[in-house]
Each structure stands twice: as structure tokens, then as C-alpha cells.
Design a protein around this nucleic acid. Structure first.
Length: 463
DNA sequence: TAATGCGGGTTCA
DNA sequence: TGAACCCGCATTA
């Protein structure tokens, strides 16, 4: 890594720079991290001022604003996840875990509503609160400086990931408009969005292109007008099986970049200027293509009528499964946890929840570790017993990528993991990341298709 | 209507 | 004093 300058005593060249969100002086960074939608654990990242997701303080987790009485640091705390009180299972054996509304009023309305799983008998939605930070919700901190956006997370989520933000928005649209109207609305939005995106990209070819783009899944000559259904921050079309590390090695701002630092003194709030980054041009969002077959693997698993809660049917792998830049090797581990009880009927390829859901981690940063309660005791789906898992230390050591304290760059083939001064290596090409925003707003052909599929398996409820 | 940000205020360790 | 949380308000989509 390249350290530009360092006024802090711990940032001399060759050493791992260090900072805390509350520091009076934070480093000046010239190389940035890739945006992480599902940051979990004690994480610090530095994003470029032009990173739209960072500017919006986006997160896959349902984070609500929390007043910390510090105008320079925005604090958010996790709301947890909306689950079924009956702990019902979807046909693939996974669980209901919806996104809680950020708005208190809306969230209260969500609670107590019937479980959207048609196979659920009498379940109601209830909030499973986040207690991942010493018994308190996981908190995210955002700090804007002239040269960067600093992000710090404290705590590890002790609950599944909520559904994608876009999914809840789509459902809300559908809930309001009901079936036919919702579809029509989506189709109309698609046309408007495609138009808007083309215009936007023509006008601003570079501003939001900080993330390298994946190549199209399908060669140009095989393309059809299909785009991803993902929301702006949960785009799961990042997965490309044929990706190689070299594919994204050309970007000047590599997602695996580490950071270089200047000392940075806080300045008056202002719109951060765009940095002179040498971003590679990207394909238009409309260039995100999927094979038609893949359309049917998007979003939630397909619901089939099933008589009993524990009765499970096969589900197919989805893009969400194959997931995000924050996909971690623990996901296989999660798969074990979340495999349906009696799992003989479960597919080899899990549903989005199975791979993409949250996870349980012991809070290794708390002086007084919080002891979570088993939420799904019968299946140990999210809260395994001690004997079913490795020690918290090992979990974290194995699964947590080294964050900004890492001095060496992470390449695409090898992620380095740091835990209590120990480093672990792990090969995982799926740790590629690329710009969600650029590929997320496309579409809605497949959104409509996916939504219709969704409807087959979920009751339309206003959540 | 909900997401988001801001800020006043309270409670508690 | 710091952290968590509640509440209301304003803005935006």
C-alpha cells in the first residue's frame, strides 16, 4: 500500500494506518475500499467522496438514524429483522425475514401483521431486534471529510439479514397497488427508468463509475433485453461464475485497494469534491444482462403449497445466494445452520436466506459478552448451539476480512483475514465487488417477472 | 407514505 | 459523560 503522508504517530510508511471514527484527526486517504453493503462485525472502511452509496449512508441492514449529538458523525443503529412469530419455514426450509421499516410508525404497522408465507399457520410478523453489540444494536458511523467518507461499524449482527431493500420497496408498491396495477406500475417504471438511466449516463459518464463493472454474462450477440431485478444496494447480479481475478484487475480504483493516508483535520461540512480518480469507463446499466433462465432464479424462493411447516421442497440457487462482495466463507457454515430440519429434501442449492442471511457471531469486542437467545431453537437455524459451531474467536478469525488496518492490498484471489493480530488467508474469487448502483437501477422486466413469481408464494400484504 | 437526516430531550450506567 | 433511545420536524422521492 502507499501511504501518502501521515501525521499520526501510527501511520508512518510501511505500517498499518489506524483510525477511529471519533478521532479528532482522521487520515487522508487516496485509495479507497469498495463499498460494502453488508458490513458486519467491527469494520472500518473509507470510501471516495463520489461513492454514491456511501454518500447516502446505504446499508443492506435496516439501519435507522440515531442521534449521537455529534453533527460531524452520523450514527445509525440496526433495527434487526422482521420474522414470523410462528417460526414458519418457506418451502426450501428457510425462514421469513423481512426488512423492518425504518420509520417507527411504519414499523409498528408491520408488526402483528400476518406472516406473508402462505404456508404459515397463524404466524405474525414481529421484529427480531439486533443485539449484536454487547446486547445493543449494531451501530454504523459515517463521517464525511473533504477527501473521503469514513465508515465504521461496531458489533456483529446476531440475526439474519433482512430481505433486500428493493424487495421491500417492490412489495410495498405491490401492496398498495395490488396485483395487476402493481405489475403495470413496474412496467411503466421500467420504461421511465431505462430512459432516465440512459440520459444520466450520457450526462455523467464518470461520476458514479468508481466501481468497476463486470462483463456481461451473455455475449452481446446473445443478449436479450433482460436486466437485473435487484434494488440499488442489493444487486445480486454481481455473481458471475466465469469471472476471473483478471477481469477486474484493470480498474484504477480496485475494490481490493487498500488505503493511503494523509492526516486529515476536520473541516467545515461541505459537499465533497470529486477526486481525480482514474475510473474505468463502465457499461451502461442497461448492459447488465441475464440469461432468461436466470430470471426464474431471482429473488425469493418459489413458494409451493406445502402442508406442514417442516415440509420442505427444493429451491434453486439465486443470484442473491451467490452474492455480494461481503460474501464470506462462513456462508457454507451458515448453510449448515440454516439447512431445513430433516434436510433430506432440501436442495443442494440454498435459497437466498440460506446463503445470504445474517449470521451469529459472538461479540468478541464486548467486555461483557452478550448471550443471545436462541430464536430458532428447533432448527438452530440462526442461533446454533455451542456444539454446532466453532468458537467465536475462530469464527471471526476465519470469516472477517481484514479491514482498513490491513497494510497489504487484498487481491481478488486472496483475502487476508486478521484477528487479534493473526492473519488468515482465504481464496475466494467471489469477493469481487463492483458497483451496485450502476447495475441496480436497470430493469424491470425481470422485476415484474420476479414479483409475479413472488406472488405465487407470498401473500401480498402491506408491510 | 416512507426513507432519511437533524436535533431536542430523557434515561441509565 | 457517553450511549441508547424516544420523539417531532423537515425534506425528499
Amino acid at each position: 500500500m502507499v501511504i501518502v503522508t501521515g501525521n499520526r504517530p501510527d501511520m508512518s510508511e510501511g505500517q498499518t494506518p489506524d483510525w477511529d471514527i471519533n478521532d479528532a484527526v482522521v487520515p487522508r486517504v487516496v485509495n479507497f475500499d469498495a463499498f460494502g453493503e453488508w458490513c458486519d462485525g467491527h469494520v472500518r472502511r473509507v470510501y471516495p467522496p463520489a461513492c454514491e452509496e456511501a454518500r447516502r449512508h446505504a446499508s443492506g441492514w435496516a439501519m435507522r438514524n440515531t442521534n449521537n449529538h455529534n453533527v460531524h458523525i452520523l450514527k445509525k443503529s440496526c433495527l434487526g429483522v422482521l420474522v414470523c412469530s410462528a417460526r414458519c419455514r418457506l418451502p426450501d426450509g428457510s425462514r421469513i425475514h423481512l426488512r423492518p421499516a425504518i420509520c417507527d410508525k411504519a414499523r409498528k404497522k408491520q408488526q402483528g401483521k400476518p406472516c406473508p408465507n402462505r404456508g404459515c399457520n397463524g404466524g405474525r410478523l414481529e421484529v427480531l431486534p439486533c443485539r449484536g453489540h454487547c446486547g445493543y444494536p449494531v451501530t454504523h458511523f459515517w463521517r464525511h471529510t473533504e477527501h473521503a467518507i469514513f465508515f465504521q461499524a461496531k458489533g456483529a449482527h446476531d440475526h439474519p439479514r433482512p430481505e433486500a431493500k428493493g424487495a421491500s420497496e417492490v412489495r410495498r408498491s405491490l401492496g398498495a397497488g395490488r396485483r395487476v396495477r402493481g405489475l403495470a406500475l413496474l412496467l411503466a417504471r421500467e420504461a421511465a427508468m431505462a430512459d432516465k438511466m440512459l440520459t444520466t449516463n450520457a450526462d455523467k459518464p464518470n461520476v458514479n463509475n468508481a466501481h468497476p463493472q463486470p462483463p456481461p454474462l451473455i455475449p452481446d450477440n446473445q443478449r436479450v433485453q433482460l436486466t437485473c431485478t435487484c434494488g440499488p444496494f442489493e444487486c445480486s447480479c454481481r455473481w458471475r461464475p466465469e469471472l476471473t481475478a483478471d477481469t477486474y484487475a484493470t480498474g484504477a480504483w480496485s475494490p481490493q485497494n487498500t488505503q493511503s493516508y494523509h492526516a486529515y483535520a476536520p473541516s467545515a461540512p461541505q459537499d465533497p469534491p470529486l477526486q481525480a480518480q482514474h475510473y474505468d469507463p463502465i457499461a451502461l446499466p442497461g448492459d447488465e444482462m441475464y440469461h432468461p433462465n436466470e430470471i426464474f432464479h431471482l429473488d425469493q424462493p418459489i413458494r409451493l403449497d406445502f402442508p406442514a411447516e417442516e415440509h420442505t421442497l427444493e429451491s434453486s440457487l439465486t443470484f442473491a445466494d451467490l452474492n455480494s462482495e461481503n460474501s464470506r466463507p462462513e456462508e457454507a457454515y451458515w448453510l449448515d445452520w440454516q439447512r431445513p430440519t430433516g434436510g433430506s429434501e432440501s436442495s443442494e442449492t440454498p435459497s437466498p436466506e440460506l446463503l445470504g442471511s445474517g449470521h451469529q457471531q459472538a461479540e468478541a469486542y464486548c467486555e461483557q459478552p452478550y448471550v443471545p437467545q436462541a430464536y430458532y431453537p428447533e432448527g438452530a437455524q440462526y442461533y446454533p448451539n455451542e456444539h454446532t459451531r466453532t468458537s467465536p474467536e475462530m469464527d471471526e478469525a476465519q470469516f472477517y476480512p481484514t479491514e482498513s488496518r490491513t497494510s497489504a492490498p487484498m487481491n481478488t484471489q486472496e483475502q487476508r483475514f486478521l484477528r487479534y493480530g493473526q492473519e488468515y488467508s482465504q481464496t475466494n474469487v467471489d469477493m469481487h465487488t463492483w458497483n451496485y448502483s450502476d447495475c441496480a437501477f436497470t430493469s424491470n422486466d425481470t422485476t415484474a417477472t420476479s414479483v409475479n413469481l413472488h406472488r405465487q408464494y407470498f401473500d401480498v400484504v402491506d408491510l
